[in-house]
Amino acid sequence: MIEVNNIRKTYGDTVALDAVTLSVGKGELFGLIGPDGAGKTSLFRILTTLLLPEGGSATVNHHDVVKDYKKIRKEAGYMPGNFSLYQDLSVEENLQFFASIFHTDIQTNFEIIRSIYEPLAPFKNRRAGALSGGMKQKLALCCSLIHNPPVLFLDEPTTGVDALSRQEFWETLHELKKKGVTILVSTPYMDEASLCDRIAMIQAGHLIGIGTPAEIISGFTKPLWSVSGMDIYRLLKDLQDFQQTDSCSLFGNNIHVTLKNGVADVSALKEYLLRKGHETASINPVAPVIEDCFIERMKE
């Protein structure tokens, strides 16, 4: 559904995208994960035909993003990162307007948005500006779905909304996926990766990993330990000073550690921690999360 081949884009001296290649299959929920400024928005704008790539090629639903841009504009649904609707128009008026620019109306494709629109229906005459964050997000999604697009581009839709609304939003995306919509969604939040079928990790314009969340996690080769104890900060400092430490950083209330010789160094670490007075410290093997993988690949 989406094919990206060696796409390159620069702004002056800054390289926004460098030889980015990825492919999203029909009906896939694909996550583009990376921090602010990694190039996510640039890629979205190229795929929605708002920016021209400087090199490489890309197609959306078999249409070239440069040559056939008009066809993509007719078909694709797009929710930009800063999309905030028309605050002074009502829920219904917003929806009507976005339907009309795609030469359709609310009724024609109502089925696709029915379940998303349901909680909004009682407020259809309320101005969009007076809706809660979660409601706004739902309405924005309805507006980008109203022409029943086969492919949907969502640029950071979950930034700035509370955890409950985000959860509901992801549930909605899974429902849409069941209806056959291909979705490319970006997020800076690593913990949302597991909600996607496949993800691409992006950092400073480079893709640093691509695959299912499980594949990416299994690509983390070193044994990982979670160290916890009473005095986390002192523990962290001591771990950083330990000669056999390969990497160590805070992760929640614990410290994630990899060792230079893996399992072989664990007993030495235990001794070291005892020597440093961390009697209560515990060392447990732990499965890495996407964030650990991202960090490991960033270093390469």
Binding site: G34, S249, L250, F251, E291, F294, I295, M298, K299
Partner: peptide, 20 residues
Amino acid sequence: GGVDPVTRRQFWEMIYETAY
């Protein structure tokens, strides 16, 4: 919000240091 995970963990290290 929005920073890469390496920076984020470093940032939390600063917070822990400050709390310490």
